[in-house]
Nucleic acid binder design. Structure first.
Lengths: 148, 148
DNA sequence: CATTTACATTTGTATATACAATTATTGTAA
DNA sequence: TTACAATAATTGTATATACAAATGTAAATG
């Protein structure tokens, strides 16, 4: 992927600007791959993400603030995101008996079954996205990402 | 930035998955910085991007498909994006005389003045985002990004 | 030269997201 | 124990984005 070629410019871009633009271009590609992979499962990346968190709870219910805290991309409306999962029957929501301000969200059996399929699709997408990287380069990437 | 800490998990994540999640976390941070930087200028990243392209045309008008082609993040509605720039008086739009299907978009004097301010804000954001990187690391990043 | 096809942009519509305001519940201090 | 503040979630609203359909213009074809 050549930056100058993709955005069709013939001028040279300062290294810092170029790095940011380059990053954004990669981001577009990754998003495309992932949403394409999850499309047959009929969930968004965010929904997939929340399901994974719920599964990680191992039965222990999660409330909205916990979900928000653990989400990769925080968004201002976790309520409505969970609404979608309820509508699909992938999650269950009830008010917390000990503190009725809170809410208890769990993944359903169906949610777990579907999540397995999503995992598969996601793994394939990850392999496609990172197909040109060897182990050492991936580690290098992670080290560099730590500096952000 | 430690992935496991940010998403609050205690399990170890496979390297490929970790890389993707790490990337997304960095993306969030970059987006936050940039939209914060551009907020006082009252434009979105996309609008800023289009203004830069228009300036790059050096007077030569651009049509919508050209803009779309050169935008870092392609989006399905360049018409309405340009509408916003017109409303702010940053751009000008007229139908192309030689081919009335096309449209000629140019940056206005005011647009150029404001874009200068945005450049400044953007440069500061870029410096903040990349403050922990030295020249060599930036080059390394760009090389690795090429592999996506 | 009438008809079809291709092109460039715009509009409609559904969904997503950001941000602020509101509701409901609990905790706390006078 | 009443009033006030803090917490947790929900709702309203404005804006953003994705995707498809529609509009208007030009080119090509018979």
């Amino acid at each position: 992927m050549n930056v100058e070629e993709v955005i069709k410019t013939d001028r040279s871009i300062p290294l810092k600007s170029r790095t940011i633009i380059h990053f954004m271009l990669v981001n577009n590609k990754i998003n495309e791959e992932i949403s394409m992979a999850l499309k047959p499962c009929d969930v968004s990346v965010q929904q997939f993400n929340v399901l994974r968190i719920l599964r990680g709870q191992k039965g222990k219910p999660a409330n909205l603030s916990t979900l928000n805290e653990r989400m990769v991309t925080k968004m201002s409306n976790t309520t409505r995101l969970v609404d979608k999962l309820l509508a699909k029957g992938y999650a269950d929501r009830k008010t917390c008996p000990s503190n009725r301000r809170k809410v208890e969200i769990t993944i359903t059996k169906l949610g777990e079954v579907e999540l397995k399929k999503m995992d598969l699709a996601m793994n394939q997408a990850e392999r496609r996205i990172l197909q040109n990287f060897d182990q050492k380069e991936l580690e290098q990437l992670n080290i560099l990402f730590n500096k952000f």
